[in-house]
Structures are given as C-alpha cells and as structure tokens.
C-alpha cells in the first residue's frame, strides 16, 4: 500500500482501488483514507470546474443586474420604460461615446401598415439592402440587412431557381428581381412558436421583438418561411460616427448579442409618419408603403387595381406585404 495515494486521480490511487475494489466492506482505516482521497478528488474537481466556467465571469460583467431583472416590455410601466431607455442610452454613451435618442414609438391608432413592391420595376440594384443596413445599425463586417434580393429567371416564381449572390450590372435581360424581407404576417408563425412571448404583433401590424426579453432559442428563425429573422451571433459592430442616433426601443437601437431581430417596417420612422428607409432609397420607385385602412391610400389603390402576388400564400401566413406588376 502506498501512502501518497491522495495526490493524483490516476496514479497511486489506482493500486489502492484496484486491490480492494470488490471488497464490499473495507476496514475502517482504509475507509477514512478513501474519504481523504474522495475529498482530494472533490477539491480537484471543484477547482477544475471553477477554471472551466471562468470565461462566464467575463460574460457576466457585460450584463448588469438591472438588465437581468428587466421584465417583459408589455409589463413595463411608463416609469419603468423611462428608466430602461435611460439606462440603454447611457450604455451606448459609455461604450461608443455617442448620444442616441431611443424613443418608445407606439402604433398610431387606426393604422395598419402594408408594403408593396412593383416587380415589373425593381431592378435588383440593392440600394434598399444598403439603406436598411445603415438605418438599422447593422453589423458592418457582415453587411447585415433585413432585406435579401433574389435574382430570378423570367418565366418562373419558383425560388429554387433564384440566386441571392448575383452581382455586376443589373437588370440582366433574362432576369427579374424579388426583394424579400419580413412580410409582417397576419398569422405569423414566428410569433406562435416563441416560448417566452418575446415577439408579438402590434396593432398596426408590425411584428416586433423585445430584444431584452428574447432568450435566443431561434425557434422563430426556424418557423419563418421568408428568412426574415436574424440572430446576433456576435455583437454587431458599428463605427461610432455611423450609428444612427434616431432609434426606437422595439426597432433599430443597438441590439444585444444572442437575441433575434427583424425588420420592423422602420417603426421608428413610420410611426412618426415617415416612409421606411428602404423605400426612400429605392431609385426605381418600386416600393410603396402605406396605411391600408385609409381608403385613399396608395397601397389601397394598388391592391384594388393591380395584379398582386403574395409570397408563399399557400402557407396561410397572410402577409401584409404584396408584390405587384404593371
């Protein structure tokens, strides 16, 4: 019997254990030594455990207690919201040295937003993609954006034949272009699947995400038929002088890492009566936006007078987004 059996997990202890392993009733002395070995093992294990989780300490530093304790957006009182927004603005100031204005834009009563794109006109130049990227403070390195444009051969509507990685001169003669972004569905599958109600449809039809409530399970990403949702795989990086300071809590404020985000029809603009950034950027005038409850609205006229195509209509998601043709 060796006496240094408490030093290492595999070395000396082996002989001890091996020699008496099957004895059901070890003598008291060995039992206490065994206890000591177990204690040593436990200590080693605990130390290894602490070492293993050490990266978490750094992650914990990034999350304040106030953020951790923050409750669901719909449960926040006006006073809570004021404090939350103050905190978020202070965090941006501290991290980026930029003064941003985070508003809490609520739906305008009597509005239901609808978007339409003229596929006869869209030429796939990608200005909308870029405008979205800048307006919504997306990660610069990945050119993130809520809009993807498919280049499609004429004569089909099957996206199987589409291609998002086209480049060069557009439009190509045998192609047409299909921009896809969140369709703000009236039956949104992404909202149904969220286990914590971190995403919901508001009265004006916009599907929003509470970035401070989302747990990042990405079930909504799996459920969305339009590839409309994006996950923050890492913290988005935006140079301080490029941060768009006109922000809204449910919209384009800088999003935390590990949560899902999506197009909000630029609610920080549209709920203040302005047109979305992607529409203003469109050089072809293919994009139309408006309030479908207003009988005199552009969007209403299009739906009543133009041929309209609804993307994946057969899925029953009832998009508030239409494609039309001249």
């Amino acid at each position: 019997m060796t006496t240094t059996n408490d030093s290492s997990p595999t070395g000396d202890g082996s002989q001890v254990d091996g020699s008496q392993g099957d004895r059901s009733l070890p003598v008291l002395q060995h039992s206490s030594r065994r206890t000591a070995v177990k204690g040593a093992f436990a200590t080693l294990g605990a130390a290894a455990f602490v070492a293993a989780v050490s990266p978490l300490r750094q992650a914990a530093k990034q999350t304040t207690a106030a953020e951790f304790m923050q409750t669901h957006y719909k449960r926040l009182t006006d006073e809570d919201k004021r404090q939350v927004i103050e905190r978020l603005e202070a965090e941006v100031k501290q991290e980026h040295g930029v003064d941003v204005d985070i508003a809490d834009d609520r739906p305008i009563p009597g509005t239901k937003f609808v978007y339409a794109i003229n596929l006869s006109v869209c030429n796939g130049n990608g200005k909308c993609v870029e405008a979205c990227h800048k307006e919504n403070n997306h990660d610069r390195a990945t050119n993130q954006s809520y809009i993807r444009v498919l280049e499609m051969p004429k004569g089909t509507m099957d996206m199987e034949h589409g291609n998002t990685t086209y480049s060069g001169v557009v439009p190509k003669d045998d192609k047409f272009y299909l921009p896809v972004q969140c369709q703000q569905c009236d039956e949104p599958p992404c909202v149904d699947v969220c286990p914590v109600k971190a995403t919901w449809k508001e009265e004006d039809g916009i599907v929003v995400v509470d970035y401070n409530w989302c747990i990042g399970c990405r079930y909504c990403e799996a459920a969305c038929p339009y590839h409309a949702r994006r996950f923050n795989w890492k913290q988005a990086e935006v140079p301080a002088d490029e941060i768009n300071p006109d922000q809204s809590y449910l919209s384009n404020r800088l999003r935390p890492v590990g949560v899902v985000e999506k197009c909000t029809y630029c609610l920080h603009r549209t709920r203040r009566g302005k047109l979305p950034a992607c529409l203003e950027a469109c050089p072809t005038g293919a994009r139309v936006f408006g309030n479908i409850l207003d009988p005199d609205s552009n969007i209403r006229w299009i739906l009543e007078n133009k041929r309209v195509y609804i993307l994946k209509e057969e899925l029953g998601t009832k998009p508030a987004f239409f494609y039309y043709f001249d």
Partner: peptide
Amino acid sequence: VDLGRPDRFWHL
C-alpha cells in the same frame, strides 16, 4: 447550450 441568452432562462 443552444440558447443565445442562457442568463434569461428564467423567462421560461
């Protein structure tokens, strides 16, 4: 381990 925000597990 699949959660982006395991610190918000309590939301569940």
